[in-house]
Write a protein that binds this DNA or RNA. Structure first.
Length: 274
DNA sequence: CGGACAACCTGGCGGC
DNA sequence: TGCCGCCAGGTTGTCC
């Protein structure tokens, strides 16, 4: 669920409550959430460090501290928020990691499915796998996109989901971008015309930018750090709209599986054969 | 390189 | 009301 727009929204929402706060202690009831380091080492190392900045790379949240970077990946059901010590909210049922901060507040990481990951490292590059370009940056031009497509032979949806090809796109925004570009998710990447590549480049950026503007999609698990819902889901063209009329042509939106993932598309607006 | 698929986990939901 | 099985999707790793 949390894709680039959701992660970006979390990052923006954490800056005010987190920057300037110092870690006083660590509590966990499922230490597997901490990766690449024993929990005791994590506790010893993070204690006393102060948060200085909060940034994003791909779907990773980067909380920069005095000496290290606290790196969080929300995966499917992760939620990250700062609340006063005594506050109890529903998501706390799955809050497996809590950092006690000064000022009487806690940074809590809630994750119902325990897929999320937390790392502490001097340099995030030591943690990241190979990551593609940031689609919303100015240097992600259509030429860059076309260059990365060259030589690839794969269905276009699978390629959009590949984080080493382009960073930050997940299942929801891949479907939305492909619809807006009028491209069937099973089209092979090497069959796209110059015009289609140009359209897809534009719709990837527009879809993600809209997602950020709407503060993410709260379909089930995702919430902003302040606990409220995003509105992105109210503006979807195809995701979750299978069985409903296409907003462009009225045809019934179909759902199928592409590379093991639920995939939504309009069979008329996104023809497989052109 | 690409495709298929299991694994990691558990809540929510439809069906009976 | 309760139990069963399936679905959700980010990422890694394995096998062909």
């Amino acid at each position: 669920m949390p894709e680039l727009p959701e992660v970006e929204t979390v990052v923006r929402g954490l800056r005010a409550p987190l920057i300037g706060r110092t870690v006083l202690g660590v509590w966990t009831d499922w230490s597997n959430v901490i990766h690449e380091m024993p929990p005791e080492a994590f506790t010893a190392r993070i204690s006393g460090q102060t948060f200085t900045a909060v940034k994003r790379r791909a779907k990773y949240i980067l909380c920069e501290m005095t000496h290290d970077v606290l790196i969080v990946h929300l995966r499917m059901t992760g939620r990250l928020y700062v609340v006063p010590d005594e506050t109890v909210i529903d998501a706390d049922r799955w809050a497996h990691l809590r950092l006690q901060l000064d000022g009487g507040v806690q940074l809590r990481f809630s994750d119902a499915r325990k897929f999320g990951r937390v790392y502490l490292s001097e340099n995030p590059d030591n943690i990241f796998p190979k990551l593609g370009p940031e689609p919303l940056e100015d240097d992600f031009t259509v030429e860059v996109f076309a260059g990365r497509l060259a030589g690839r032979h794969k269905n276009i949806k699978a390629l959009l989901l590949d984080q080493s090809f382009i960073a930050g796109v997940g299942n929801i925004y891949a479907d939305e971008a492909l619809f807006r570009a009028g491209i069937h998710p099973l089209r092979n990447s090497d069959s796209l015309s110059v015009e289609e590549i140009k359209r897809l480049h534009e719709t990837i950026r527009a879809t993600l930018a809209d997602g950020v503007d709407y503060e993410g999609a709260s379909i089930n698990w995702y919430r902003k750090p302040d606990g409220t819902a995003g509105e992105s889901q109210e503006h979807f063209y195809v995701y979750g709209r299978n069985g409903k009329a296409c907003l462009t042509c009225g045809t019934i939106i179909e759902k199928t599986r592409v590379t093991q993932r639920g995939t939504h598309y309009c069979p008329v607006c996104q023809p497989l054969n052109r």
